[in-house]
């Protein structure tokens, strides 16, 4: 009973906030609407007994949206003032495509005769996940980790203009001219 109530409340929150992302008049509101949508889905994943994944979704998405809001403000130049904004193209086509996709998926969800459940969940799903990642599915871990590292490096290389060579000189021993460094950092290099 309690679970059902929470599930339906979260369903409404997830959909309404998801739609709000493309409706509201402010970048901050759009970003945090998306964050709320993710938190609602995170709670539902919790209800589906994947505690670790659910909490991680909440953690990651709130953090990411906090940073995203800054990007929004930075790149879109919005005052906190609520300005009506509509920056869309092909609105009608997009709407049609989205509707078709939704109807197809919904029909699939309702009409396909889903099989009954096979197997039983383990008593501690978090431990099971950890053992899977560190045991039979080790390959996933070993692939994902370097991809993440590569992402960090690639992200910085793409986005930044001044590299560490600009800051610390060709031999990385420290900048010759500290006065030209607008951000000297805290560990005294």
């Amino acid at each position: 009973m309690f679970v059902d109530v929470v599930f339906w409340v979260m369903t409404v929150v997830a959909v309404v906030m998801g739609a709000a992302v493309f409706v509201v008049d402010s970048m901050a509101r759009a970003t945090y609407a998306l964050a709320l949508s993710f938190v609602a889905v995170g709670v539902q994943v919790l209800l589906l007994h994947q505690d670790y994944v659910g909490v991680i979704v909440i953690l990651m998405m709130v953090m990411e949206m906090a940073v995203m809001a800054v990007y929004m403000v930075m790149f879109m130049g919005m005052n906190p003032a609520l300005m009506p904004m509509s920056m869309v193209h092909d609105k009608r086509k997009a709407l049609a495509a989205a509707s078709v996709v939704f109807l197809t998926l919904a029909a699939g969800a309702l009409l396909i005769p889903w099989p009954t459940r096979r197997g039983q969940p383990s008593s501690d799903t978090t431990r099971a996940l950890g053992e899977a990642l560190m045991g039979s599915k080790m390959l996933v871990m070993t692939v994902v980790s370097p991809v993440m590292v590569a992402t960090i490096v690639a992200g910085i290389v793409i986005a930044s203009k001044r590299s560490r060579y600009d800051r610390l000189g060709d031999d990385l021993r420290g900048a010759a001219d500290h006065s030209a460094d607008p951000q000297r950092g805290g560990v005294g290099r």
Binding site: T11, G18, F22, M72, M87, A94, L95, L105, G108
Partner: peptide, 29 residues
């Protein structure tokens, strides 16, 4: 909470996202 309701909600979120991804002009959006 059944598989069908969960999948319906997932489909709705996916479609809204698809609409946004196609129609929005701004990269971050």
């Amino acid at each position: 909470m059944t598989l069908q309701t969960v999948l319906l909600l997932a489909a709705a979120l996916f479609s809204i996202g698809l609409y946004g991804a196609i129609s929005q002009q701004v990269v971050v959006m």
